[in-house]
Amino acid sequence: MGLGVYQSLFDVFLLNCGFAFSQFIVLRAGVFSIASAAYAGIGGYATAILVTRYGVSAPVAVAAATALGLIVAGVLSIPLARLRGVYQAIATLAFVEIVVSLGFYAEDLTGGAMGINGIPKLVGTGTLCVALGAVLYLMVAIDRSGLGRAFDTVRQDETVAGSLGISVQRSHAIAFIISGGIGGLFGGLQSLYVYSIEPQQFGFALLVSMLASIVLGGRGTVIGPIIGTAILTALPELARPLAENRPLIHGLLLIVIINYLPHGVADSLALLRRRRRAANAV
């Protein structure tokens, strides 16, 4: 493998980290939404169409993709406010299916099954780093704020959250909208990186890899999604003969980790550290 391979692997890692944070933030607030793949699709198509068809500049197109993600997620959060857990998952899965089918059937706009080709590559490692840096900053800011505390409380016990004056609905809506913005942003960036997009790349496989990176890494700390994504991106490449079997590896890893580290790598470590500190304190 030449250096270039590692470079592009790193870029893929950065993109996947962005997607993972879109998934992370809803789970953090106790929303079992898996709509992030759909936001990525919406942002990806919006950017590709704006750039290839209307000659819009890259920053404007990506900004529009982000805004579209925010808006779509905000609208989606209204009908989903009453749903919880597995019902939220199913409803958002349906939304992902809708977006993928729109990709297939709105041929005039999306190019149908052929997708959109010949998208200029206007995004490189630098841009991806800056975008992920911004998302990380946002995540750390939330983590250290009252909003992060509200998210944590809502996730663990909605009754307790209510008893402390925390609006579950408001927390969920905010998490939804942030998730939409990040999904749209990285969908847009991806379009300007990969030359061509097609509907099925925003479907079940993307959704599973986003979820898997959170389950692997952990949803309680900001570093979790990064660790999870790093494992999922690197492992199939390191075990080169297995690279063809990426889904198989995802699946096996998930089963192993869920069994032995149910909180994910980062959260399990954090928990261990807290227990040890507490043991020293008492």
């Binding site: 009252g146 505390r149 409380t153 925390i166």
Partner: peptide, 21 residues
């Protein structure tokens, strides 16, 4: 988390990590 009711920092200052937050 019990102090939530007394929090005054705006949503924007939470998201942007401003000193108020």
């Amino acid at each position: 988390v019990g102090f939530h009711r007394l929090e005054r920092a705006s949503l924007a200052s939470h998201l942007l990590g401003l000193p108020a937050s």
